[in-house]
Computed example of a mutant assay.
Amino acid sequence: MIPNQREILEDETSSRPLRDRSTVETLVSRFKGDEAHTAKDVLAVEEPLEIQLGYGPADSRRTKSISVTMRTPGHDFELVAGFLLTEGVVSDYADIGEISYVAGRASDLRSEEPSLSEDLILPYQPERNVVRVDLAPDVSVSLANLERNFYTTSSCGICGKASLLALRTVCPPRYLNRFQVSAHVLCSLPDKLRAAQEVFDRTGGLHASGMFDAEGHLHSIREDVGRHNAVDKLLGAEFLADRTPVHDRLLFLSGRASFELLQKALMGGIPMVVSVGAPSSLAVQVAKEFDMTLVGFLRGDHFNVYQGAERIVGDFGVKENL
C-alpha cells in the first residue's frame, strides 16, 4: 500500500534527519578585499536518485531501471510519484502499489536490466539513493514511454510541433479553465515563497516551486537543485494524497518557465503557471495550446502575461505600447 504523507516523511528521515541530508558543511577561504580567513559554508546536497519500476501481472513481475536524476535528498517518494505522473506512466494514485527504498549499491540491485547508475558513486547513504515503485498488477506500461528523454527536454532536438503533438497523446482530458487571481495577489507571491525557502536560506543554491490558491495562500513548497525535481516533488505530494488533477491552485516557479515545467503542470492539471523568470517560446506554445494562464518576469509590481490575461483580475486597464 502507498504510505501516507506522515509515513513517507518518517521513513525518509528515520536513519538520518532530513536537514542533514539536504545540506552539508564545507570549509571555504572567504575573501574581503585583500584579507582572507577560513570559514564554514553550507552547500545544498546533490545526489543521484535511481528510479526503478516494478510492473506486470502478479505471476510474472518485471523490474526496470527507468531514470537517474540528480536531486537534493528529501521527499524522494513524492519526487518519484510526481515524475511518473508527469511522464504519463501513471494517472491515478491507485496505480501505485508500493514505493520503497532499495538497499545496497546500484550494482547489487535486483533489476533485470543494467542499472542506469551502475557507474555512479552513491555518496552518504546508497540505500537512500535508489527507489523502486511497484505498480498495481492491472496497470499496463508502455515501454516506449519509459525512456527518460523521449521528447520532454529542450535539448532533445525535437521540434516544437512534434513535442506538442507528443504531449497531446499523454495529457489528461481538457477542462474549462476558470481559475482567476488578482494582480495584487500575484505581486505578493515572490516574497511569500522566498520566506518559506528554509534550505535556500542556508545554502543560496536551490530552486523552489510553490502551490498557491487564488487568495495567495501558500499550500505547499518544495526545494531542489533541479527545478524539474522541485515541481515533481510538489505534484507528487498532491498525487499521493489523491488530490490530482489540481484545478484550484497555481504553480509558482522561482526560476524560468520551460517547456518541461509547463508539461508537468499540464499533466498535474495546474491551470496557471507563474515564474519570476522568462518563459521559453515552446512554454508559451504549450500555454496557448492547452489554455493555461502563463505569467513571467514577476518582479515587484511588474509582470508579463503570455496567455490568459483575462484571468488576471483587478481595477486596471491595458494600454498598447507596441
Rank of each mutant, 00 (worst) to 15 (best):
E10F: 00
T13I: 03
D20S: 11
R21T: 04
V24L: 13
K32I: 13
D34C: 03
D34H: 09
D34Y: 11
H37I: 09
T38A: 12
K40A: 07
D41Q: 14
V45L: 04
D59E: 14
S60V: 09
R61D: 12
T72S: 09
A81K: 08
G82H: 04
V90D: 00
V90H: 04
D92L: 09
I99A: 02
Y101K: 12
A103W: 10
R105G: 01
S111C: 01
S111M: 01
E113P: 00
E113Y: 15
E118A: 13
L120A: 10
L122F: 06
Y124Q: 08
Q125A: 08
R128G: 14
R128P: 01
V130P: 00
S140L: 13
V141Y: 03
T152V: 05
T153F: 08
C159E: 15
G160P: 11
L164G: 08
A166T: 04
R168Y: 02
P173N: 06
N177M: 05
S182Y: 12
H184E: 13
V185H: 01
L186Y: 00
L186Q: 10
L189E: 05
D191T: 05
R194N: 06
A195Y: 06
A195R: 11
V199I: 08
S209M: 01
E215V: 03
H217P: 00
R222I: 06
D224H: 01
G226L: 09
A230W: 00
D232R: 15
D232I: 07
E238Q: 14
L240N: 07
D242P: 02
R243S: 01
R243I: 00
V246D: 09
H247C: 03
L250W: 04
S254W: 10
S258V: 07
G268V: 01
M272E: 08
V274W: 03
S275I: 12
V276C: 02
G277R: 12
L282H: 08
V284S: 06
Q285M: 09
V295S: 02
G296D: 06
F297K: 14
G300C: 14
G300S: 07
N304T: 10
V305M: 12
G308E: 05
G308P: 02
G308C: 03
G308A: 06
F316I: 10
N321D: 08
L322P: 02
